[in-house]
């Protein structure tokens, strides 16, 4: 099943009289189960593309289909619902909520899903054990190393069992050992059926992917179609 499809999406930023085209007519398809790496030089539009396909932002022109549904005319509420139900997001700088503990950070997506407390507790525990952070559950983000923070961020992203996990430079702020750990986790998730779309500069990291999309100056250079589709 095509979980994601973009048709001629463009993103243009306007500042005073200057227009900057961040993405230019990008067509892309992602199948369920794909592990996609988006690569390209700085400023080529990688994060912009990730924002558009993760329903964080709206394209200036073109259309993003998520689970074969057009998203351009979706209300903010509906897009939030999609993010809640089907999408997980891992940020480069973790973006954990500092006022919440490890446990509470991971639990938050389930709270938004209005999941009963007992079930929430069970799922949070499961994912913490899976990522080996259960013993840190009462810690606050400031008390954790970068590697652990990213584990928590991944745990929070996957706790609601999203169909797609988006990751923006997930190892960008980590040392090589912790970076490797995170990549292993993503790989394992993919093997268990989660679709992963990752922006990365790192060639070794990109090798975990089943498919690499290359961007240059806002345009897709290669990898627009999944191998399963060909």
């Amino acid at each position: 099943m095509k979980i994601l499809k973009t048709v001629n999406i463009e993103k243009v930023y306007r500042s005073f009289d200057i227009e900057t085209t961040a993405l230019n007519k990008v067509n892309l398809e992602i199948e369920q189960g794909d592990f996609v790496s988006i690569m390209g030089p700085s400023g080529c539009g990688k994060s912009t593309l990730l924002n558009l396909i993760s329903l964080m932002d709206l394209p200036t022109r073109g259309e993003v289909f998520f689970m074969e549904q057009s998203t351009s005319r979706m209300t903010d509420k509906k897009r939030a619902e999609f993010r809640r139900k089907y999408i997980g997001f891992v940020f480069q700088n973790f973006n954990l909520i500092e006022e919440l503990s490890v446990y509470e950070n991971i639990e938050l997506p389930l709270v938004y899903l209005r999941m009963p407390a007992a079930e929430r507790s069970m799922r949070v525990k499961q994912v913490m054990e899976k990522l080996d952070i259960a013993y840190k559950q009462h810690f606050f983000p400031m008390q954790l190393s970068g590697g652990h923070q990213q584990r928590v961020a991944v745990a929070r992203a996957i706790v609601a069992s999203p169909m797609v996990l988006f990751a923006d430079e997930p190892t960008g702020n980590l040392d090589s050992v912790h970076g490797l750990e995170v990549m292993e986790i993503l790989s394992e998730l993919n093997q268990n059926g989660t679709t992963i779309v990752m922006v990365t500069h790192s060639v070794p990291n990109s090798e975990y992917a089943s498919r690499i999309i290359k961007l240059f100056d806002g345009q897709l250079v290669s990898g627009s179609v999944s191998q399963y589709s060909i």
Binding site: A80, R83, F91, E99, L108, Y112, L113
Partner: peptide
């Protein structure tokens, strides 16, 4: 930042 994170994980404006 907190707002952005909450939005990214599915909180809508109303919430």
């Amino acid at each position: 930042k907190e707002v952005v994170v909450r939005k990214a994980i599915g909180a809508d404006k109303e919430e």
